[in-house]
């Protein structure tokens, strides 16, 4: 009697197990509760490009998307084969779920992505190639806030001449400078442009000399993409910062900045990784540039802080109005990636 009951019980348990196993809705494994990211930096966390990513990660860590406990480790600035070696070490350690290479690293990722199909690779910005699969290509455009800064500059300029000092003439640098001047010309058609590239990510001496030269030619507001505000201080003119709120670098000159926010990009990548791990969805990295606009939280304009009084109320209102239109999607800032030139 007992033996028959035991046999039935075993059979029923086996049946239940078989049904559960064959169920299409069953998770493949327990949902992950930890996410470990390896980050290859290109310039160091003190640089706006890399620093803003780490700031975004801090915010996302606190928000705990999917209930994940997020940790990361970043490298010193690495390029070329060194970056490739670091990626391989991270991948082979088996400790990292995402390898986020925060610049032009698709050449290095190409050699690793198929060997480590479970790892999600990220490359960022211009100069990359979109392979798809487990490589996601994050792009950043801050042309919309740059357009708003241009509007301010166009309205405030007395000499009708504006300057922009850039790093390298790349797709995602040109779009900002062109948008800045487009905004300025829309606000004041008499505006003349002067543009310079220092061909370096950071060389304060060169950046300073180019800025001083622009001021000497009559520019009275500068869109400073190279981080040196000293010439603006000396000439007592207003400048605009780039990529992060750079007011603290020069409180007397930096009226506002075009700010990059990586939060939606990081969440986009985490969601893709989560869908792969918990739902078994194959990775489907993008092959074309993918960015989040101001509307989606990918960029913003920094507050005016204690320089707000330098901005007339009507200009402030115009900027707010333009910003509202951009956020509502009723006004689109054109993307122009051609090499900006002086007039």
């Amino acid at each position: 009697m007992f033996t028959r009951f035991a046999k039935r019980l075993v059979a029923m348990v086996a049946l239940v197990v078989a049904v559960v196993i064959s169920s299409p809705d069953r998770p493949l494994a327990a949902d992950p509760d930890k996410l470990n990211i390896a980050i290859i930096l290109s310039a160091g966390i003190d640089n706006a490009w890399d620093g803003t990513l780490i700031e975004a990660l801090e915010r996302i860590k606190a928000a705990k998307p999917h209930g994940l406990e997020i940790t990361w480790k970043y490298t010193d600035p690495l390029w070329g084969d060194d970056a490739g070696d670091a990626m391989r070490l991270f991948a082979e350690s088996g400790e990292y779920d995402i390898i986020w290479a925060h610049s032009t690293y698709s050449d290095q990722v190409k050699k690793l992505k198929d060997e480590f199909p479970e790892i999600l690779f990220v490359v960022v910005g211009s100069g990359n190639e979109g392979f798809g699969g487990n490589q996601y290509w994050v792009y950043k455009r801050v042309h919309e806030p740059a357009y708003l800064l241009g509007h301010i500059a166009g309205k405030l300029s007395k000499s009708n001449k504006l300057g922009a000092v850039g790093t390298f003439p790349a797709d995602d640098v040109n779009d900002e400078i062109n948008a800045f001047f487009a905004g300025a010309k829309a606000a004041n058609p008499k505006i003349e442009r002067t543009v310079a590239f220092i061909e370096s990510w950071y060389d304060p001496a060169k950046a300073g000399e180019y800025t001083s030269a622009q001021i000497a030619t009559g520019a009275d507001l500068i869109f400073q993409l190279t981080g040196n505000f000293k010439p603006c201080e000396e000439a007592k003119i207003l400048c605009f910062g780039n990529f992060q709120d750079q007011h603290s670098f020069s409180p007397s000159t930096v009226l506002s900045s075009a700010v990059a926010q990586w939060d939606p990009d990081v969440l986009w990548v985490i969601d893709a990784w989560w869908a792969h791990k918990s739902e078994g969805k194959p990775y489907a990295g993008n092959t074309e540039k993918h960015w989040f606009s101001m509307k989606d939280g990918g960029a913003t304009i920094a507050p005016y802080r204690d320089l707000e009084a330098r901005l007339p109320a009507d200009v402030r209102a115009e900027v707010e109005d333009l910003k509202a239109k951009i956020l509502a999607g009723t006004f689109e800032v054109p993307i122009d990636v051609s090499d900006p030139k002086a007039d």
Partner: peptide
């Protein structure tokens, strides 16, 4: 004379 910060 030129900068306000250090970088690599």
């Amino acid at each position: 004379g030129f900068s306000d910060r250090f970088l690599a």
